[in-house]
Design a protein around this nucleic acid. Structure first.
Lengths: 213, 213
DNA sequence: CTTGATAAGTAAGCAATGCTAACTTAAGTT
DNA sequence: AACTTAAGTTAGCATTGCTTACTTATCAAG
């Protein structure tokens, strides 16, 4: 989808070498994860999609899970980028920035629920992958900064971290409930945007005293 | 672990029939899901754990996923029970009830992260299992009731549902982040109980106006 | 008690998967 | 032109999910 130039001889290729199998595999897996769910993806199927033998992927990845990790690393980057893009058009310190952040998070989850689930939990060993953790932290950093700017406090202030985490919990939970269809939306009778901004303002505006242990 | 009397001839049994294989399988699977993760469980392994041939489970369950659904149904029930138990000792309408509710939810997730992940997402077709959905709804019902009682409004009031959902999102999200080790606790520097009650009071106390679309 | 019917187990086997090993082909490098 | 090496291939192993056909126990009825 990006990185314009590349091998791209596949599929049904006539050259022996593929061009950029690694990149193509990640893309194939990403799609398979979306259509068949995170669990129901097979290396064999991805190989076929890339038009290559079932053993070829192991020249580029150690493991099945190594492929998944690569997909997650990629997704983490895309998510962080999406968040940064969502924030950009709004003035620093505005509540709009925070709302936009939340919306971009939920949008990402809704658009690619399979990958989203992959990013959190599911697969063993995420916590040991430093690339994934680092990109996750840098995404969270955006939230912290926006919160700090909105509250007019230092970006390293503990309070900013706490509030940011509260918001993250809410948005994260809502995202999961949405993609898992546990939303009970009909009874809820409130649209997402309203819900989101109500919670943001509630958490950021008025919890101050109680949060200080 | 419960339901005292039962077959329980296994394992290394000497009778041809097992006693209550179905129940034992669910228990085995539950354990396997915890140790090997929700994805890394195999019917074969569960069969071995129950001391029975690999084909035996198919006399009791249609599918691999049917087994997982049974585990989830069981877990949903246990979770709803845990929540009801947590609430019971506190007076109706008190904030303690709500805090206890949140804590029991998180405790459940922490105690059995594999099953918890199984309950939400991961496996295809939860949304079509009426038993699972019903038990989930009845668990949420507890939250709604506690919130309504605390706010002193009707238990069917829309506002109660909205606030309950907000709380649920937060607790749910926090639970996932905890079991996925994305917590960044060291930077957070606030204990869970404080965090929890701060958010509850914030959401229940002061968001009122903004939430009404 | 024998007799059936049925529930609950087993054994054997199929297709598919994850992964490895040994080989082949292409593409530089010197 | 010869070597090295990256990137494919085929063949095969062990394991898995699941099915089919068979075996064994249990229970109800005569």
């Amino acid at each position: 989808m990006d990185d314009a130039e590349a091998g791209s001889k596949a599929p049904g290729r006539e050259t022996y070498h593929h061009g950029d199998l690694r990149r193509d595999l990640i893309a194939s897996v990403r799609q398979l994860v979306e259509t068949h769910g995170p669990d129901g993806f097979s290396v064999a199927e991805a190989s076929r999609a890339a038009g290559v033998s079932t053993a070829a992927p192991y020249k580029h990845f150690k493991d099945k899970t190594a492929i998944l990790h690569a997909v997650v690393e990629d997704a983490m980057q895309r998510m962080a980028d999406a968040m940064a893009d969502a924030v950009a058009p709004h003035p620093v310190g505005s509540i709009e920035r925070i709302d936009a952040l939340g919306r971009s998070y939920i949008d990402f989850a809704r658009a690619q629920p399979g990958v989203f689930r992959l990013m959190f939990g599911l697969t063993r060993g995420h916590e040991n992958d430093e690339v994934i953790m680092e990109r996750g932290r840098s995404a969270f950093r955006i939230v912290v900064d926006c919160v700090a700017d909105y509250l007019g406090i230092d970006r390293d202030a503990n309070l900013a971290w706490q509030r940011a985490y509260m918001l993250w919990c809410f948005v994260h939970g809502h995202s999961f409930l949405v993609i898992d269809d546990k939303t009970t939306k009909q009874e809820l009778d409130i649209d997402e945007i309203t819900l989101l901004s109500a919670v943001s303002q509630g958490i950021l505006g008025t919890v101050s005293k109680a949060a200080d242990s």
